[in-house]
Design a protein around this nucleic acid. Structure first.
Length: 563
RNA sequence: UGGGAAGUCGUCCAAUGGCAGGACACACGGCUCUGGACCGUGGAAUCGGGGUUCGAGUCCCUGCUUCCCAGCCA
């Protein structure tokens, strides 16, 4: 489990407790084997990340193995595109699966043999009912089902029919193989569930080798048994499939007996995580694709600028339990900020520029200041920033009439220009529409580097860019995709979309941003964390995606004052 | 009027039958050349009703609420 055998930050949970108990009792000789079993019919999302972190984490902690196994038993929905995307995302998250990638389809022949065993033992039969007829006989939640008229075919007839199903003698839907369990079971999953269906579809791996495909319950349980999975971790909705899981393993006479354990799937406030709904967002063009930075997909989070370590930390903090829960998206944002604060280089960039003229600084002079790249990491070094008479500052950092707690620019007020000088506002100009066009100031020649010689306190520090040296950058400001905590709860998912989930601005940044490469994650001081978009950036002309804002104390004060 | 599962601060996760704790969020304060980060303080919870016990979030009974299940999807 080499590089991914990282120290997990996860707290002990009930699953780890069960596994520790199993090992203590010498079950499976203390060996632990898990698997992450995605269906390749969509992109992985943050909910899958929870499962990945759990499965790989538990295996690593116990010196065990974790397989990546695709549950590819339904050729109608599965595609190679998704197979590749899934592998890439798992690797990007920082995990290495044991050995080669696995596919349920690797086991089709073995699974077929297990099915024949079932038939020979009188535990499965070929049913010739239509899907509708079968549904009618299944009964309801509260009333028992009725046995199919084909339920008592002889072993010989069943075997013959099943082999002919495989041989392609029948049309799609003509027959299915069913488990022979109990049509009166209160657990609907045990009312003779379908094990195999005929589907004349090209499979992304086995091509046209098969025209019958196994169903999930059968294929998953026995794939686990074949692969020696000791602990098969899945989500709560499979809880009442567990009797069927155990039945398949037992009645097929599999030599290895895995154990299924269910935990609560992840839900996150202000986002949706169902494949169906994510697919809708993609197909209806609400977002630009599976990797749109507003998507909760791994690909989306990556393009948004979230580091894999942050996603792992988030999953560890979320914990593992059996109760349905919705994690506050603020916890995800916190995990991202925490990681980025430690690791990202700082830059100065102005997103809504207005000109600041330093009246007592000569027109032709260029001064260079040295700025720290990351105050949290001395090893990150420093960089040079040019300073000239005409600068850009943030329009929002000037107020004509400022309140007492305003630590920024306003006539007569003094602020620090980050890493440079202390300046005092001497005036401003507006156009005919009353829009601010320019701010003027004078610097204190004794304050070079930004500290006041007389020790006077200057509370505010502004970011700035030399107008002459500024690099224009396209910046996309992302916000949550939905404006309600539980999107779609009142029916219409689209009605809950946040109209401001993305705005694009033209900013001005310090020269060093020209060196940014695709995927580089930075902080624009006082604004937030940004990533150099790997798709739309060109050399020397970075396009930046805002990952998450910095916490903003002033915004909170303002909000409070409005109330 | 079936079966399965779950109910602990606003949110998420803990607590051999023995002082209900941590994180996020929130509020207040400190510190700061990012109103960032960091540090400190605070408010904040055992679904209800019975019972067992010296002692119950934990055990028993009962009620309530929420989630999942009637694919030839996974």
């Amino acid at each position: 489990m080499s590089p991914a055998a990282r120290k997990s930050g996860a707290a002990p949970d009930f699953i780890r407790g069960i596994i520790a108990g199993d090992r203590a009792r010498g079950r499976h000789d203390g060996r632990v084997g898990t698997r992450f079993p995605p269906e390749p019919n969509g992109f992985l999302h943050i909910g899958h990340a929870k499962s990945i972190v759990l499965n790989f984490g538990v295996a690593a902690e116990n010196g065990g193995t974790c397989f990546l196994r695709y549950d590819d038993t339904n050729p109608a929905k599965e595609e190679q595109l998704y197979v590749d995307a899934i592998a890439r995302d798992v690797e990007w998250l920082g995990y290495r699966w044991s050995g080669r990638r696995r596919f349920a389809s690797d086991h089709f022949e073995r699974l077929y043999e297990f099915a024949e065993t079932l038939i020979r033992r009188g535990k499965a039969y070929v049913d010739s009912l239509s899907a509708e007829e079968m549904r009618a006989l299944r009964g309801t939640l509260e009333t028992p089902g009725t046995e199919s008229p084909w339920r008592d075919r002889s072993v010989e007839e069943n075997l013959d029919l099943f082999r002919r199903m495989r041989a392609g003698e029948f049309a799609d839907g003509a027959h299915v193989l069913r488990a022979r369990i109990d049509m009166r079971s209160p657990n609907l999953n045990l009312r003779d569930p379908t094990l195999y269906r005929i589907r004349r579809l090209r499979h992304h791996r086995t091509g046209d080798d098969w025209c019958i495909y196994p169903m999930y319950d059968f294929a998953h349980a026995l794939s686990d048994a074949i692969e020696g999975i000791t602990h098969s971790l899945c989500t709560l909705e499979f809880e009442d499939h567990r009797p069927l899981y155990d039945w398949c393993v037992r009645e097929s006479r599999a030599e290895f007996v895995p154990r299924q354990i269910e935990f609560a799937r992840l839900n996150v406030s202000y986002t949706v995580l169902s494949k169906r709904r994510l697919l809708r967002l993609v197909e209806e063009g609400v977002v630009s694709g599976w990797d749109d930075p507003r998507m909760p997909t791994i690909a989306g989070l990556r393009r948004r600028g979230a580091p894999p370590a942050a996603i792992r930390a988030f999953c560890d903090r979320v914990g593992v339990a059996k109760r349905d829960s919705t994690v506050d998206v603020a916890l995800l944002e916190y995990a991202i900020r925490e990681e980025l604060n430690r690791t990202s280089r700082r830059f100065l960039g102005v997103l809504d520029p207005v000109r600041l003229v330093v009246e007592n600084f000569p027109e032709d002079r260029v001064e260079t200041f040295t700025a720290v790249n990351n105050p949290e990491d001395p090893g990150a070094g420093t960089r040079e920033i040019p300073f000239t008479r005409e600068l850009f500052i943030e329009r929002g950092d000037f107020l004509e009439e400022a309140p007492r707690k305003w630590f920024r620019l306003s006539p007569g007020r003094e602020v620090r220009l980050r890493a440079a000088w202390l300046v005092t506002c001497t005036g401003f100009t507006k156009d005919a529409d009353g829009r601010l066009t320019e701010v003027r100031c004078r610097l204190d020649p004794a304050s070079r580097g930004g500290s006041a010689p007389d020790g006077r306190r200057v509370r505010g520090t502004l970011h700035w860019v030399s107008a002459r040296h500024a690099v224009p950058v396209e910046v996309r400001l992302y916000d949550r995709l939905f404006r309600t905590e539980d999107p779609g709860r009142d029916g219409d998912l689209f009605a809950d979309l946040n109209p401001d989930s993305m705005t694009t601005v033209r900013g001005q940044a310090e020269p060093a941003v020209r060196d940014l490469g695709p995927g580089d994650r930075i902080q624009f001081e006082r604004l937030g964390y940004f990533v150099c978009d790997p798709v739309d950036s060109v050399a020397g002309q970075p396009v930046l995606n805002r990952t998450v804002t910095l916490r903003d104390a002033w915004a909170r004060i303002r909000k409070r004052q409005r109330r």
